[in-house]
Computed example of a mutant assay.
Amino acid sequence: MNFSDKTIDWLGAAAAWLFFATGMLLTWEVVARYVFSAPTIWAAEISQMFLIWGMYIALPHTIARRKNINIELLYERLPGWAQRFCDLVSVVFTGFFCIVVFWFGWEIAWDSFVRGRSTGTMLNIPNWWTEMVIPLGFGLSVLVCAADLFKLARGKPVAKPAGTGEH
């Protein structure tokens, strides 16, 4: 396992912990509101931010480990060269999509940073704190796609789709 694999796995684990923390914060909010009649001003907003961060930092892990939705009925029946061609098409389209979202996500996050936009809630969190994770997650996903393209160019297979029994 090399540095990039460890980084990808760390991102997946960090996302899982953020999802766990989101569940705990929302549970606390329910208990505080309905048991103690003392709702918080922060739990819902922080949990929303954790959920967004978790989703976007999990993206490179999902792409690298091929845990996204796949139609395996046909893929599994294809010969090896056709599977590699499908992998190539998939990686190219995924990479292109990630580049586009990275670009526009960066513009939005940078604009919020420059203009000083914030949530307008009691916590008044700067919007770029949440928006910056979009170009981060998609930028890392572009690197994953580039690594997969490099593997395919060298004749090496990318990770098999999640349901094929080969990981």
Rank of each mutant, 00 (worst) to 15 (best):
N2Y: 00
F3P: 00
D5H: 07
K6R: 15
T7N: 03
I8S: 02
W10S: 12
L11Y: 11
G12F: 07
A13E: 03
A14I: 15
A14K: 02
A16V: 04
A16E: 02
W17D: 03
L18Y: 07
L18N: 08
F19Y: 14
F20P: 06
A21I: 08
G23K: 03
M24Y: 01
L25T: 05
W28Q: 12
W28N: 08
E29W: 07
V31A: 13
Y34R: 06
V35A: 15
V35S: 09
A38L: 01
P39M: 04
P39F: 01
T40G: 13
A44R: 12
E45F: 10
F50S: 07
L51Q: 11
Y56M: 13
I57T: 04
L59Q: 03
P60T: 04
P60H: 14
T62P: 01
I71R: 09
E72T: 14
L73H: 06
L74V: 15
E76Y: 00
L78V: 02
P79A: 03
G80H: 11
W81N: 03
W81A: 03
Q83M: 09
V89G: 09
V91E: 07
V92L: 15
G95V: 04
F96S: 08
F96K: 04
C98R: 04
C98A: 13
C98T: 11
V101E: 04
V101N: 05
W103Q: 06
F104I: 07
G105A: 08
G105R: 04
W106L: 14
E107K: 14
A109C: 01
V114Y: 05
R115W: 03
R117F: 15
S118H: 09
T119P: 04
G120H: 13
M122I: 12
L123K: 09
I125R: 07
W128H: 10
W128E: 04
W129Y: 15
W129V: 09
W129C: 05
W129D: 00
E131A: 07
E131W: 13
L136Q: 05
G139D: 09
G139V: 12
L140Y: 11
S141Y: 12
V142S: 08
V142R: 13
L143Q: 05
L143C: 10
C145I: 02
C145S: 13
A146V: 15
A147W: 13
D148C: 00
L149K: 11
L149Q: 06
L149C: 12
F150C: 05
R154A: 05
G155C: 01
K156Y: 04
P157W: 08
P157Q: 11
K160N: 10
K160C: 03
G163P: 00
G163A: 10
T164I: 05
T164R: 06
G165I: 03
E166Y: 07
